[in-house]
Design a protein around this nucleic acid. Structure first.
Length: 574
RNA sequence: GAAUCGCUAGCUCAGCUGGUAGAGCAACAGACUCUUAAUCUGUGGGUCCAGGGUUCGAUCCCCUGGCGGUUCACCA
């Protein structure tokens, strides 16, 4: 337990004790028979209908007390409902102080209570529950931030992002709309699973802990496996494992899971994030484009009830079909440069003409990627498939059927960002091996994101993989789009934060060890000497003044220590 | 990683190029039987992020550090 409690926390702990003394268990064990919810009570209410009895439960979010009657707002999992509590209704023979003492004095905002009563409409027109019995279900010992709403405007918002993310539970309780984001997130996932299930594809799980991190260009997290005494990596993609399963004979497999990338952290990146990857045999990337646009249209409809969604100032339409543009067309459109049949040196030249910063470690693929990223990507607000990437950028992708310099690949751009990435998967094991070797050369050149050779994956391909199309989608980004959020932190329940650091204080025994009487430890700590070391070399006269002053100001009534004993503390502290 | 802004009561924020702090909500005491940001009266609550410097004196000025926001760069 924390040593330092705020005044309000002490009050609540005192109330807890008093409840126990009154024979009220603040944390009862038995089931509470809830049979109604805030939202449905309102929608089902009819003024003419016979009175409805309900049992509801939730958190007290506000109280308006007027003598013998009160209104509280009770928040359950679906929203809030007003409850009318009057003294003569809830007092009982066993508990005649239920209203005046228990309800008015010992209960607080944040406590969970259960209400039995009937639904009615107040004089001011609000559908409410008239309490006939009230029961404490769980006492809250820490005051919640109080956010008040009127006409949709929030007053005293709890909006410091650090506090909100670190204490998401508080954010969810007090801030309107936060829970809805995560309910929508769940709906995105269930809609996606339902779509895949309708095709008969299988959801699988593959290793998160890998000895060769493959399937993407990214820096991995390293960890250590004691039993084998080897370093291992957190996965950066699921691709290579899922394709092994296509080799094994699945018609279609998909995985929704966390990837981990040891890179930056900002409003669109979290070190762990959720990706969906799907692989379907006997398909190509053309089929996958249609499959993907139908998927997104369905998700948007299921989640928002429409194919349009507002993100920032943009309205994005997920109505299929989406526009399709090849990568070289796109670059030509936005830069005027035609890269068709250009070599690495020519492209590096073009990069310089476009004032792009490039260096010698960049291969042709990466150079083209730079141009696209700088001049094109951000322009695609409406969903647009960018197709036919240069072969150097796509080591796991099949060569284009009409042009061996290109690959059968698409990325889906939405709101200026990549949302999906898909291929006609490379299934030529010899080609695949050679491309891994190319990646190794890039790694030797200094590209620390280049892939390592996964020999087992090549072996799997040697047994034969049917023609396959695969697609990966950033689920967090998808949820951002579907909920209109502009930061990834808003769609992750617990985004990565720097560890919370608590200042460490010395214990009482460290003070008594240098001769400080126990009753003076707290005043010393309050004055800022929370570590014995801080007393070292201090002017005893100043400390004497401070302590006597503190004693007087706070009316502690302690006998002031002598200057001599204070001098001995400061000496012994060293 | 860079620039910039911020850190003051449980929460949201004031605080005059310097004299150890204020408001609203929350809390506490009281009034009030249909209120709804309830209202009215009264009270308490603070290592002003941390450390150092300048000064008789620092929440305020300077330096260093911590944490966070925003913008930018890199990665999905």
């Amino acid at each position: 337990m924390d040593i330092q409690l705020s005044e309000q926390e002490i009050m609540r702990r005192n109330s807890l004790e008093q409840l126990r003394r009154m024979g009220i268990n603040p944390y009862p064990a038995d089931l509470y028979p809830v049979d109604a919810y805030s939202d449905e009570i309102r929608t089902h209410f009819e003024d003419a209908a016979p009175q409805r009895q309900v049992v509801i439960a939730g958190r007290i979010m506000s109280r308006r007390i007027m003598g013998k009657a009160s209104f509280i707002e009770l928040q359950d999992s679906r929203g809030r409902i007003q409850v009318y509590v009057s003294r003569d209704d809830i007092n009982t023979e066993e508990q005649p102080e239920m209203y005046n003492t228990v309800f008015k004095k010992l209960l607080d905002i944040g406590d969970f209570i259960g209400i039995e009563g009937f639904v009615f409409r107040t004089q001011t027109g609000e559908i409410s529950v008239h309490a006939q019995r009230l029961r404490l279900l769980s006492k809250s010992l820490r005051p919640l931030p109080i956010v008040k709403y009127k006409d949709g405007v929030a007053y005293d918002r709890f909006d410091d992002p650090e506090l909100r993310y670190r204490q998401r539970y508080v954010d969810l309780v007090v801030n309107d709309g936060v829970k809805q984001i995560f309910e929508k997130r769940a709906k995105v996932f269930s809609s996606l699973r339902a779509y895949f299930a309708s095709f008969g594809y299988t959801e699988v799980e593959t290793p998160t802990l890998q000895s060769i991190p493959g399937g993407a260009s990214a820096r991995p997290f390293t960890t250590h496996f004691n039993a084998l005494n080897i370093d291992m990596y957190m996965r950066i993609a699921t691709e290579l494992y899922l394709k092994r399963l296509i080799v094994g004979g699945f018609e279609g497999v998909f995985e929704i899971g966390k990837n981990f990338r040891n890179e930056g952290m900002d409003r669109t990146h979290n070190p762990e994030f959720t990706c969906m990857e799907i692989y379907v045999s006997y398909k190509d990337y053309e089929w996958m484009m249609t499959f993907t646009e139908n998927l997104l249209q369905k998700i948007c409809l299921d989640v928002n009830g429409t194919t349009e969604v507002k993100v920032g100032d943009n309205v994005i339409s997920f109505k299929a079909p989406f526009r399709r543009v090849t990568m070289l067309e796109s670059i030509k459109e936005f830069t005027g440069k035609d890269l068709t049949d250009k070599g690495e040196d020519e492209i590096r030249q073009i990069c310089q003409e476009l004032h792009l910063e490039v260096d010698e470690t960049m291969g042709k693929g990466k150079l083209i990627d730079e141009i696209f990223g700088e001049f094109c990507e951000g322009n695609y607000i409406q969903p647009t498939f960018i197709t036919d990437y240069p072969i150097e950028m796509s080591p796991l992708c099949k060569r284009h059927r009409h042009n061996p310099e290109l690959t059968e690949r698409f990325e889906l751009m939405v709101n200026g960002k990549e949302l999906c990435n898909a291929y006609s998967e490379l299934n030529d094991p010899i080609d695949q091996y050679d491309r891994f070797v190319e990646q190794m050369k890039l790694a030797d050149k200094g590209d620390d994101e280049a892939m390592l050779i996964d020999h087992d994956f090549v072996r799997a391909l040697e047994y034969g993989m049917p023609p396959t199309s695969g697609m990966g989608m950033g689920m967090d980004r998808l949820v951002m789009l579907m909920t209109g959020q502009s930061t990834i932190q808003e769609v992750l329940l617990f985004p990565q934060m720097k560890p919370e650091v608590k200042p460490q204080k010395d214990g009482v025994e460290k003070y008594t060890a240098i001769g400080v009487p126990e009753e003076w430890v707290e005043p010393l700590q309050k004055l800022g000497y929370d570590k014995v070391v801080k007393l070292q070399g201090l002017n005893p006269n100043k400390l004497f003044q401070d302590l006597c002053g503190y004693n007087k100001k706070n009316k502690l009534g302690l006998q002031n220590p002598s200057k001599e004993s204070i001098a001995s503390w400061t000496e012994q502290a060293s």
